[in-house]
């Protein structure tokens, strides 16, 4: 088990290999479909982003509302592929980590290899369990998007696996190959 403390620097990125089990602690940001669309609009308009992407991790998630007394509602990963149209630009701007589930496009993987970024997987559907590792949340942009707003999360031992590393090795492909009959 590898422990990672954010920010996720390039040295750590290059040390991670597909299949590595990790526990992430520190600050990560949630963003999904609508927030990505808005981030890219800001980039295209030459405006500054709500947070500096350098060495940051984006978690593709839109949590449930928190019950009274809870930090956050269940917050598992959403399907990453819907962010593929936007991710290469964010990687180019300094993003070093993404957490989600599901396949990524070749364009995303090429950007990860070129600029140095890692794609982590969290277990899809384990949202109630994952919420236990989220210690605080604060909305930092686009509150009008509700569940899709950008949230700054402080996480402790957030469980993840390296799905695709910065060399392009892909656990989905190698794992499936191993068990295909």
């Amino acid at each position: 088990m590898i422990t990672i403390t954010t920010p996720l620097d390039k040295k750590t990125v290059s040390s991670l290999k597909a299949g590595d089990l990790v526990r992430i602690s520190g600050i990560i940001y949630t963003a999904r479909d609508a927030a990505h669309k808005k981030l890219i609009e800001l980039v295209n308009e030459g405006k500054s982003l709500p947070f500096d992407l350098t060495d940051q991790i984006i978690y593709y998630a839109g949590p449930c509302p928190a019950k009274p007394g809870m930090v956050i509602g269940p917050a598992g990963p959403t399907t990453s592929g819907r962010m593929d149209a936007y991710a290469p630009k964010l990687i180019e701007l300094g993003l070093t980590g993404m957490i989600g589930k599901g396949q990524r496009s070749n364009e995303v993987i090429e950007a990860m290899k070129k600029h140095g970024a890692v794609y982590f997987g969290a277990t899809g559907g384990a949202a109630a369990l994952i919420a236990n590792s989220i210690k605080s949340q604060e909305t930092v942009a686009f509150p009008e998007l509700g569940t899709e707003a950008i949230r700054k999360l402080v996480v402790e031992d957030f469980p993840a696996v390296v799905l695709i590393d910065s060399y392009g090795s892909n656990l989905y492909e190698s794992g499936r190959k191993k068990y295909k009959r």
């Binding site: 509602g73 917050a75 277990t123 949202a127 369990l129």
Partner: peptide, 27 residues
């Protein structure tokens, strides 16, 4: 690694029913 995932899913179901929260954020 898949057995570990399956264990997580069982544990997740237990947490959800105990706390009466959704199992998945996509309700």
């Amino acid at each position: 690694i898949c057995r570990a995932v399956l264990k997580e899913l069982v544990e997740n179901a237990n947490v959800a029913s105990n706390l009466q929260v959704p199992m998945c954020q996509d309700t």
